[in-house]
């Protein structure tokens, strides 16, 4: 528990820097935000002057940041220039969609990587190992958006097994959700799966050469027990680290994959805002996506600590 608190405290400075970065990003945009807020190029000088006051644009830089951060903490990220709706409300609708995609992709990655990684680690250079090495080289070289296009082409256009795009909420119909999420999850999860698989294999190969594994054999351990319990438990720590590093790729990749499959998550929201230069929305999306990454990485870190007694139990 103390460990969880420590990790949470360590995140605070990172959060400050991230929020500052997000704030700064928009401040550096060329052009006058007051003009945009007042309705673009056709705005009257009076409206622009009013917008300047409303937006506190004449305050000092840091007091603007302070105000923005204060509002953000209270759940106010401003209004969309386009739709005039609250950015936070829009984000709240879209976060679960993106999270469900990331979770599905992670599940796919783990379910594929664990058996293949373990079999490869048990028999280095065996058939499974050779096969999964080819698979992972391909998976790392083929960008997820290209894979997404190929999946649509094959499974939606040619075979017609699954819909090429769209989304249904998990809460509305889990079966429908699954139908829509399978291809995006595969597209997003394959590269993660490859990295995880290689790491698991390497860790297991190393692990099975250790002295404590020799001890486990020496007391008469069965293959299942030595490899499956002692080997795998110790090999899972580095694999979890890799999963943590892959979170960033998952969150970023989700943006592209959502766009291709027309999934109404944060990614499509952000891309729409980019084409319309809708700054508050872009700002909100970047902030939330960064938060998603920070929280997921934190979750991975804590999981790592929980299964690793050296971190969990102090000497």
């Amino acid at each position: 528990m103390r460990l969880v608190v420590r990790r949470l405290v360590a995140v605070v400075p990172t959060l400050l820097i991230v929020t500052f970065g997000v704030f700064l990003m928009v401040k550096l945009v060329p052009g006058d935000p007051a003009v945009n807020a007042a309705g673009g190029l056709s705005a009257t000088p009076e409206a622009i002057a009013q917008a300047r006051v409303d937006l506190h644009l004449d305050d000092s830089f840091f007091s603007q940041y302070g105000r923005w951060l204060g509002n953000a903490v209270q759940g106010d990220l401003g209004e969309s220039y386009q739709s005039r709706t609250s950015v936070v409300d829009d984000l709240a609708k879209r976060v679960p969609v993106t999270l469900s995609l990331i979770v599905a992709a992670t599940l796919f990655a783990v379910l594929l990587a664990v058996p293949l990684g373990v079999l490869s680690g048990l028999r280095p250079n065996g058939g499974v190992d050779q096969g999964s090495r080819v698979f992972s080289s391909l998976a790392i070289a083929v960008p997820n958006f290209l894979l997404a296009l190929i999946l649509v082409l094959v499974f939606a256009v040619r075979l017609g097994w699954l819909p090429p795009s769209g989304y249904t909420k998990f809460g509305d119909s889990p079966a429908e959700w699954l139908k829509f999420i399978v291809l995006p999850a595969i597209a997003l999860g394959v590269a993660v799966s490859a990295a995880l698989m290689r790491q698991l294999r390497a860790a297991l190969v190393d692990e099975l050469d250790t002295n404590h594994i020799r001890t486990a054999w020496a007391i008469g351990g069965s293959r299942r027990r030595v490899v499956g319990i002692h080997g795998l438990k110790n090999a899972s720590s580095p694999a979890i680290t890799i999963l943590g590093l892959q979170v960033a790729a998952l969150v970023g990749g989700a943006v592209l994959v959502e766009q291709i499959f027309a999934i109404p998550g944060l990614g499509t929201y952000m891309l729409g805002a980019i084409t319309q230069a809708d700054l508050p929305v872009i700002q909100g999306c970047v902030l939330v996506l960064a938060l998603v990454q920070i929280v997921l990485s934190l979750a991975v870190d804590i999981t790592y600590a929980l299964i690793n007694p050296k971190v969990r139990v102090a000497t």
Binding site: V251, G253, V255, A290, Q293, I294
Partner: peptide, 8 residues
């Protein structure tokens, strides 16, 4: 802080 943003 920079690394906390998903690169893409």
């Amino acid at each position: 802080g920079g690394l906390s943003f998903p690169p893409l």
